[in-house]
């Protein structure tokens, strides 16, 4: 059973917003991933987003693309990513884990096998960037059978009618992509984000997370004013990229802690 709804309920009861950091599994090497996941939690993460490396990450910008390439050099497959989650669960049974990636590695593994193994590993939700709801009927149903949330994206260009359709298919939370463009691009127009959040809430009852373009504690705090969760990806991957291997976990924890402090202030 997914830990995500309970986590949002707990946070809401305490008047807190969820902080969802992203790292790419296997970046910079597979042995560091589980320590980095624990460091994110120690810094104050509420849900972890773990990127599944793919050779052709069409929706990602250069930072996450490079992290994928580093992971693939170590041959990190979807099965290997699930093994990392299993390892993480040995010492953390509480923090929800969402896998974020592309359709082809899941199709190569086989949808049912993937859902079974992801459930067994302790995954809570799956966000597959290139499965829009129209192509995702079997996928959503299979994930649901295995207690996994199917998380879908909404974007600034999504018309209202589609917001409702996407919300009907989604579970766990909805991920609002706050920018046109790829991950790690440009900066946010907060007024636009606020307006879109209001539109989304008119159609969707699930918690809404906002990601893309959040690079510092101040922006995170501003986004948290209108969203239920703040997703930070490229900025954390940059921290991993720029850090010497032995201090990567500390640096990531410190950055996440600075965002946590801003969110809770």
């Amino acid at each position: 059973m997914s830990r995500i709804p309970q986590r949002f309920a707990d946070l809401s009861a305490r008047g807190r917003k969820a902080l969802i950091p992203f790292i790419t599994a296997g970046d910079p090497d597979p042995e560091l991933t589980v320590p980095l996941m624990h460091a994110l939690v120690a810094g104050g993460a509420d849900i972890l987003e773990l990127g599944v490396p793919f050779s052709d990450p069409m929706a990602d910008g250069p930072t996450i693309q490079r992290s994928s390439e580093r992971a693939l050099k170590h041959g990190v497959s979807l099965r290997r990513v699930l093994a990392m989650v299993t390892e993480f669960r040995k010492t953390d049974t509480q923090t929800p884990v969402v896998l974020m990636g592309y359709a082809n590695p899941i199709e190569a593994m086989g949808l049912t096998v993937f859902a079974q193994d992801a459930e067994a590993a302790g995954v809570d939700g799956v966000l597959t960037v290139d499965y829009p709801p129209e192509e995702a009927e079997a996928y959503s149903a299979t994930l649901a059978q295995h207690g996994l949330d199917a998380i879908f994206l909404l974007s600034p260009t999504t018309p209202d009618a589609r917001v409702e359709a996407v919300a009907r298919h989604a579970s766990g939370f909805i991920y609002y992509v706050s920018l046109k463009g790829v991950t790690g691009a440009a900066t946010l127009d907060m007024a636009e984000v606020a307006q879109r959040m209001a539109d989304i809430r008119a159609h969707a009852r699930l918690p809404v997370g906002v990601g893309f373009g959040i690079r510092d504690p101040e922006t995170a705090r501003a986004v948290a004013e209108v969203a239920d969760a703040v997703v930070i990806g490229s900025r954390i991957v940059q921290e991993v990229e720029a850090s010497p291997r032995e201090s990567a976990a500390d640096n990531v924890r410190n950055f996440v802690a600075s965002v946590r402090a801003a969110l809770d202030a």
Binding site: M58, A59, A103, V129, D130, Y131, P132, E135, F152, L153, L154, S155, P156, T157, T158, P159, R162, V166, V177, K180, G181
Partner: peptide, 8 residues
Amino acid sequence: FVAETLMA
């Protein structure tokens, strides 16, 4: 099979 941003 594309990200939501391209659907519209």
